[in-house]
Simulated scan of single mutants.
Amino acid sequence: MVELLGLLAYAELVSFFRLTSDAELAPSLGDKAELAGIAATEYEHYTRLRDHLVWLGADPEAAMEPFVVPLDTWHEQTQPQGWVESLVKAYVGDGIAGDFYRHLAQVSDTDTQELVHGVLAETGRADFVVRRVRAAIDEDPALAGRLALWARRLVGEALSQAQRVAMERPALARLVSGISESGTGEAGDLAAVGRVFARITDAHTARIEALGLGT
């Protein structure tokens, strides 16, 4: 549970930094304010996770540390080129991550489930991003193809880093696969993890269609 909460806490903290930076790319004051508000919500989520880790007797910084490299690597490898790409990343990339965290929560204790689902609750980001991306495509239809490729790249990089985390953190791999401490072992765990990632990839299609990008 500490590893799961540490992973999610660092993800929320990085999301706060990224959305704050993305707000600088926004074309209008209204858009800047909208993203700033979403970023503030992400930071509030981080503080809830941090405080819960402290309540559990864990050191939040130590709990987050193992996930700094994989999450920072994903962000470094998926630097958006402009405002619209940053919106697609916020929507698609974070959606994939949210699916992953929700799956972990399903096989966690009740308190952890409630905390994770509360942190991942809708922040208004989806509606905002869909409106802005669809408007950009209406203005320049040629964007659709480029953004569809960008979305696929985001998913590929996200799953690559998620697999890396699962391989490096056996306890999380067991949690992902729903296998207990007396489960089938590493090979079985990783096979089950692969099936979970396949289901997460399938859910990606709905997000792409909501953005008007096709598949």
Rank of each mutant, 00 (worst) to 15 (best):
L8C: 08
L35G: 03
D31G: 06
D99W: 05
A23P: 11
D140E: 15
I38Q: 01
G98W: 01
Y101N: 06
G183A: 11
R174C: 02
L172E: 02
W55E: 13
A97W: 10
T41W: 02
A63R: 00
G82E: 12
I96Y: 06
F67Y: 15
M64E: 13
V69R: 13
A210T: 09
L172N: 02
F100M: 09
G145H: 12
I96L: 11
A210S: 15
V196T: 14
S177D: 07
R102D: 10
L29S: 14
L13M: 12
H45C: 10
D51R: 06
V92N: 03
Q81P: 01
T78Y: 00
Q79K: 13
D22G: 00
D31E: 15
A142C: 04
P70F: 04
L159T: 10
D94E: 15
L104E: 01
K32S: 13
A135T: 15
A173Y: 00
T112V: 13
T205F: 10
V196P: 03
R169E: 13
V176P: 00
R18Y: 02
G95V: 06
V116W: 00
V116P: 01
Q163E: 14
A210L: 14
V2D: 08
T184R: 10
S86W: 07
G188M: 04
L143K: 07
R169M: 03
L13N: 10
T41N: 09
L104H: 08
A144V: 04
R164Q: 13
P60E: 09
R50D: 04
E157H: 11
A11D: 14
E85T: 07
F197M: 11
A136V: 07
L49D: 02
A210I: 05
A26E: 09
V84G: 01
P141I: 05
D109W: 01
G212K: 09
L115T: 06
L87K: 03
R146I: 04
G98N: 14
G118S: 04
Y10L: 11
R48E: 11
I179P: 00
A158T: 15
V2K: 10
A23E: 10
A151F: 05
L172P: 01
M167F: 04
A40M: 09
L56W: 00
I38E: 00
L149E: 15
E139D: 15
D189T: 09
R18V: 14
A36D: 08
A23H: 08
R131K: 15
D138N: 11
D109N: 11
F197C: 03
V193S: 01
A11R: 06
G118T: 04
S180Y: 02
A40H: 05
L120W: 03
A126W: 08
D189I: 00
D31N: 08
A135H: 11
E168H: 05
G98F: 04
R102K: 11
L35N: 03
I137P: 06
V155G: 07
L159K: 06
G57N: 04
A135D: 15
A90F: 01
V84Y: 03
D31A: 14
R50I: 00
D94L: 03
R146F: 04
G212S: 14
G194S: 07
A206Q: 14
R164A: 12
D189S: 12
P80F: 02
L120F: 04
K32C: 10
G214T: 12
D59T: 07
E42P: 04
Q77E: 15
